[in-house]
């Protein structure tokens, strides 16, 4: 039987964090129960629903099926890392303004998937938004307001880029 816990070194939201975890923990379990970062949600817990989505080396990744030691040495961004000291991420403001969250359980994962999309393009088409969010299930909203919010956050980022200032 393997040792009970091991130290894993994770780069989370720009910080290097060390945490003792059982070797068979998933990244999601290490984030939530080791580091107290409970923003990433434990939904289906088997890689279907997307509520646990975090950004691993710039790619949306399901933390509930990622063994924690696989994440060692990679850059992890969780929903807690999207905002900066100046204020919320434009996506978070847009979700607020558009009423894009109802129960909110899928929101952290959707924000992570959408943030990666907006890194690639700030003017995604409706189809591109749908494709980028096609691995995230929402059972409340019907998605329309979510798509609207992502498009509007993209527009704000474009305007900010044109003005050459952060604006946040």
């Amino acid at each position: 039987m393997p040792a009970v816990t091991q130290i894993v070194r994770l780069t989370v939201n720009g910080d290097l964090r060390e945490v003792g975890v059982p070797m068979h923990f998933t990244l999601l379990e290490a984030l939530r129960y080791g580091l107290g970062l409970t923003g990433s949600k434990q939904g289906c817990d088997k890689g279907d629903c997307g509520a646990c989505t975090v950004i691993l080396d710039g790619r949306p990744t399901l933390s509930c099926i990622t063994p924690v030691f696989e994440a060692e040495g990679h850059a992890i961004v969780t929903v807690e890392g999207l905002a900066d000291v100046e204020g919320p991420h434009p996506l978070q403001d847009a979700f607020d303004l558009h009423g894009a969250a109802q129960c909110g359980f899928c929101t952290p994962g959707i924000l992570c998937s959408a943030a990666v999309l907006l890194e690639k393009t700030t003017s995604p088409s409706r189809t591109e938004i749908k494709e980028a969010l096609s691995g995230n299930l929402c059972r409340c909203t019907g998605y329309s307001k979510i798509y609207d919010a992502v498009a509007s956050a993209g527009q704000r980022l474009q305007v900010e880029a044109q003005l050459g200032e952060s604006g946040r």
Partner: peptide, 9 residues
Amino acid sequence: VAGPQLRNA
């Protein structure tokens, strides 16, 4: 195959 996150892994 599956969805975007699953194709990334």
